[in-house]
Amino acid sequence: MVRADEGVWLYAVTREVPAPWLADLTGVDGEQIRVVVSTGLMAIVGTVDLADFGEQVLPARLEDIDVLAALARDHDGVIEAAVHRVTTAPMRLATMYFDDARVGQMLKDHHDDLDRTLRLIDGCEEWGVKGFAPTVTTPAQREPETSASRDAPGGGAAYLRRRRNQLMARDESENMAYRRAELVHDSLVRLSKLERRHPPQDPKLTGVDTAMVLNGAYLVPRERAATFAETVAVLGRQAGGLRLELTGPWPAYSFTGLRETTT
């Protein structure tokens, strides 16, 4: 029974199966993990305090990077425990419902989509591949700029020419990186069951000061995982300066389909 001052945090959806392993799991609020069952599907949930997780306070809490990291770690921990045992459709962080009845209704309303998703991701893992354009160093950049060179006759015009050439070289390098990234993506798609292209991430998040030209998620059958990883390594060596970063395996977050909600 969920009280008026509590809500239900949704972690994942799987088939209706015995789940004694849930007994030892706790969630984002330190709560005991439990299940809601409807129409042959099972939602893995936890009851949380709305004083900390209600829609009036949670968005502000998620802006705190330390709070966000802790919630993401606890959320992922529950999902990882499920993924290693049963085919699991993970839900996004902060997917909330008012009570168990709403969760059960969601399972009923989205039964066909969730059933299709579980069949799609069965036996698969999500892998991420990011591609970064190479750092461009022009001859002008290697020569130290001095006040004398800028102040010399014609120095200002020469500086502008060098700056223009630097920008043109960077643009040409990034355009080439994008073309190479498309070739990488096409090669990885052939090893994948499904793919998603995510928007490039901000350099503040990546810690890389060159352009992200590929941010792909790939649903890969487990028996192809080693081949997929080796292919990324080979493509990275052949990519002419394009730097590839492989991450995973992950629960299939990019392929579950349900959006974050409070209902």
Rank of each mutant, 00 (worst) to 15 (best):
W127F: 13
L71H: 02
G77P: 01
S149D: 12
T87P: 12
T137L: 10
A60N: 12
T87L: 02
T87Y: 04
D202Q: 12
P139F: 00
V184L: 10
K204M: 13
R61E: 11
D151Y: 09
K130I: 00
E143M: 13
V78Q: 07
G154L: 02
R92F: 09
P203V: 02
V184D: 07
A69H: 14
E126C: 09
V86Q: 09
Y97S: 09
A72N: 06
W127N: 01
I121Y: 00
R85S: 07
D151F: 13
L62K: 09
F132H: 09
V136C: 08
N175I: 10
M96I: 03
E63S: 09
A94T: 09
D76R: 12
D64W: 05
T88P: 15
H75T: 03
R85Q: 13
R150F: 13
R150G: 05
M168F: 04
R85K: 13
A94V: 06
K193D: 02
E145K: 09
D113I: 10
G123T: 04
A158N: 11
R197H: 10
R150A: 05
M176D: 14
K130F: 00
G123P: 01
E126V: 06
L194K: 15
R170S: 04
H198T: 05
R142G: 04
V83C: 07
H198A: 14
V184S: 09
L68R: 11
V86S: 01
N175K: 15
E182H: 14
T117R: 12
A89P: 05
R179M: 09
T95V: 03
A60L: 09
L114F: 02
P139H: 00
D112I: 02
L62R: 07
A69G: 08
Y159M: 09
A94Y: 06
P139W: 01
A89M: 15
R116V: 01
V78W: 05
Q141K: 13
D112H: 13
Q141A: 11
L194W: 08
